[in-house]
Computed example of a mutant assay.
Amino acid sequence: MADNKSGRDKQAQDAERRQQEREVATELERGDEIEPPVDAAELADFEASLEALTFPVTGTEVVAAIGDHRIESAEGSYKIEELVPESDEETFDSPAAVRVQVQRPTVAAAMKRVVEASKTLPNTEFSWSQRKAYETTFQELEAIDADDDDEGIRAISDWIVERIRDKERLPSSRAVRREAAKFCRANGYQVRNDEWLGI
């Protein structure tokens, strides 16, 4: 591969795609941790409904094809259109990638809001690593306040969307973690320095 800008861009995109594939595999292995209140049989039925799609697909294509399909979880019923960002920039390489997106509904709904809000920003790329950091923050909030109707997830997703609207840029993943830690401490949750939110 030539050592020029397009060659370096291709290498970076290939590295990001490989990282995404590793993340999907890891999430599938850890599928029974923290939230997944979505039953495995429910997810299997959902994956069967994805067979009509030709992968890779965009979030827009997933929503157009099966947006009204419902997934039942321990916390309620969700339509796919509530969990998958309706965006051409959001791509899924396989049914397993879509499954990872929807198996944690509260995190998926928060990420959908953030991704769709980020589409309003001109010349802004929402990188996979930044997206993964946001998602990890939401997962940590889910684990911390699992009994509090996901108040932390809502509060932080609201904060991110407000920053996008007010500052016209994505807040750094460190700023999101810091805000989540502030929320936790203000609401009586302990956050140790060696934890993800321990900034």
Rank of each mutant, 00 (worst) to 15 (best):
residue 8 R to P: 00
residue 41 A to T: 09
residue 131 R to S: 07
residue 36 P to N: 13
residue 59 G to K: 06
residue 27 E to C: 12
residue 168 E to T: 09
residue 58 T to S: 13
residue 172 S to W: 14
residue 138 F to Y: 06
residue 113 R to T: 06
residue 19 Q to Y: 14
residue 77 S to T: 13
residue 130 Q to V: 14
residue 3 D to K: 02
residue 105 P to Y: 08
residue 75 E to F: 08
residue 149 D to E: 12
residue 35 E to V: 12
residue 109 A to Y: 07
residue 177 R to S: 06
residue 51 E to M: 08
residue 11 Q to Y: 11
residue 97 A to V: 04
residue 164 I to G: 11
residue 179 E to S: 14
residue 145 D to Q: 15
residue 38 V to W: 01
residue 105 P to V: 05
residue 145 D to C: 08
residue 199 I to H: 12
residue 105 P to K: 02
residue 23 E to P: 00
residue 23 E to V: 10
residue 78 Y to F: 14
residue 16 E to T: 15
residue 124 T to H: 09
residue 110 A to N: 12
residue 126 F to D: 03
residue 60 T to N: 11
residue 187 N to Y: 07
residue 186 A to F: 05
residue 160 I to Q: 05
residue 194 D to C: 06
residue 180 A to C: 09
residue 68 D to F: 02
residue 25 A to M: 13
residue 80 I to T: 09
residue 125 E to Q: 13
residue 94 S to C: 10
residue 40 A to L: 11
residue 51 E to W: 01
residue 189 Y to E: 02
residue 160 I to H: 00
residue 189 Y to C: 02
residue 103 Q to P: 01
residue 133 A to F: 12
residue 131 R to V: 00
residue 44 A to Y: 03
residue 166 D to Q: 14
residue 61 E to P: 00
residue 17 R to Q: 13
residue 47 E to T: 01
residue 136 T to C: 02
residue 80 I to F: 06
residue 161 V to M: 03
residue 193 N to M: 07
residue 121 L to V: 05
residue 152 G to C: 01
residue 176 V to R: 09
residue 103 Q to K: 08
residue 119 K to L: 12
residue 70 R to S: 00
residue 126 F to P: 01
residue 81 E to S: 15
residue 189 Y to V: 07
residue 158 D to M: 00
residue 165 R to N: 13
residue 14 D to V: 11
residue 75 E to T: 11
residue 185 R to S: 01
residue 43 L to I: 11
residue 109 A to W: 04
residue 34 I to G: 09
residue 122 P to N: 05
residue 111 M to P: 01
residue 172 S to L: 14
residue 130 Q to F: 04
residue 74 A to F: 07
residue 168 E to S: 10
residue 129 S to W: 09
residue 101 Q to C: 03
residue 86 E to R: 13
residue 74 A to E: 11
residue 121 L to R: 05
residue 185 R to L: 07
residue 191 V to E: 06
residue 197 L to G: 04
residue 117 A to K: 03
residue 150 D to E: 09
residue 99 R to H: 02
residue 39 D to M: 11
residue 103 Q to S: 02
